[in-house]
């Protein structure tokens, strides 16, 4: 048995437990918990039975199983990067609105600053 086929399932199981706890605490929605769990299950399956990735690879017309895994991971990372970017941008916009609103509601008078 190869080292990764032991380590990866352990990491995946820990990740699933952590995601479950986050879901329990209400920090994650059920759907994102489900999607992530599914992804980690795939990681477990692929590390214990590396050849199983070949089935998926063939389905997409890719000749090697590892290529399939790498392509999917890259796409996933790209998607997450983009999602984060948009989230950040939205946060910035909201922050600008708040900062502006706070300033507009508080015209600074001379007595405010003098103790």
């Amino acid at each position: 048995m190869l080292i990764y086929s032991v380590i990866f399932p352990i990491i995946s199981l820990i990740a699933i437990v952590l995601f479950y706890l986050r879901y329990k605490e209400g920090k994650n929605s059920f759907s994102s918990f489900l999607i992530w769990t599914l992804m980690w299950i795939f990681v477990i399956v692929f590390s214990i039975f590396p050849n199983s990735s070949l089935i998926f690879a063939r389905a997409f017309g890719i000749s090697r199983g590892l290529d399939f895994i790498i392509i999917v991971s890259l796409l996933l990372m790209f998607y997450m990067g983009l999602k984060l970017y948009y989230k950040l941008e939205r946060l910035e916009e909201n922050m600008n609105k708040i900062v502006k609103e706070v300033a507009l509601n508080n015209e600074i008078q001379l007595d405010d600053k003098e103790e």
Binding site: V102, A103, L104, E107, I108
Partner: peptide, 8 residues
């Protein structure tokens, strides 16, 4: 005078 609480 108005003041933004953080630099924007």
């Amino acid at each position: 005078v108005y003041s933004l609480i953080i630099n924007r």
